[in-house]
């Protein structure tokens, strides 16, 4: 559904990403693993049209070329990003955030039903519709961010470190919710540092190092991959257990 190839990003002299490519299918969870500064966030932002890329990138969504579209039109095409730090409107209420989520024209039909589904996925949001988002806990804010992105009726949802700053229990809840999102047919691409939890729900994954995609495989393959074991799963100790 989402096909990405040859994305390169540079910030001045610094090359953040070189010829990266990946794909996400319908109802598929794909995880990108990489250390801090490896280029994960740049990759997501480049796909979403928030940072400018070097020439030559190809991005298609359901066969439609969306490379070079401005960010707001990429959302309209069916790709939603939940950025690191969540990118929600902290000064507005939960209800207003969800209303704005359904701002794209593609999200207007069936808005009420989609809102019902989001509130069923995150019941806590339903109890707090009138609350200003700034005053909510980190876990609740993450729910607002994902709920708002789902309101845009996306084909593909991009999530940048959704588990950051959440307790282990909340992380498990969050990933269970993402599984439910997948069942509705949405493709999910997430960047994570929490390799164990994210590989457990992932269908496929990519490894990224120094701005390059260095490996890929199914979730179980990556789980048993030596490099992944060493870098993300606690190395020898983990494999011995």
């Amino acid at each position: 559904m989402l096909e990405v190839a040859d994305i390169s990003v540079a910030y001045g002299q610094h090359r953040a990403l070189t010829d990266a490519g990946l794909s996400v299918g319908r109802s598929e969870i794909v995880v990108i693993l990489g250390a801090n500064g490896a280029g994960k966030t740049s990759l997501l932002k480049a796909i979403a049209g928030i940072v400018a890329c070097l020439p030559g990138k190809r991005v298609t969504l359901s066969g439609r070329d969306i490379a070079g579209l401005p960010a707001h039109e990429i959302v309209e095409a069916g790709l939603a990003l939940v950025p690191e730090g969540r990118g929600i409107f902290a000064d507005l209420t939960v209800a207003e955030n969800l209303l704005l989520g359904a701002n794209p024209k593609r999200a207007r039909d069936g808005e009420a039903a989609r809102r019902e589904r989001v509130l069923a996925l995150f019941p806590r949001l339903g109890e707090r519709l009138g609350q200003t988002v700034r005053t909510m806990s980190g876990g609740e804010q993450q729910m607002v961010a994902i709920g708002r992105a789902l309101m845009s009726n996306p084909d593909v949802l991009l999530l940048d470190e959704p588990s950051l700053g959440l307790s282990p229990l909340l992380v498990r809840e969050l990933f269970a919710s993402l599984r439910k999102v997948r069942e509705s047919g949405v493709g999910l691409l997430l960047v994570e540092q929490n390799a164990r939890e994210s590989l457990a729900i992932a269908d496929r994954g990519y490894l990224i190092e120094n701005g390059k995609i260095t490996g890929s495989g199914t979730g179980t393959e990556l789980m048993s991959n030596d490099a992944v074991q060493r870098a993300y799963l606690g190395g020898i100790v983990a494999s011995a257990v």
Binding site: H72, V75, G87, F89, A90, D91, L100, P104, R148, S152
Partner: peptide, 10 residues
């Protein structure tokens, strides 16, 4: 309140 986030909702 947040022009960056505004882009994310089209």
């Amino acid at each position: 309140v947040d022009p960056m986030a505004a882009q994310l909702v089209a």
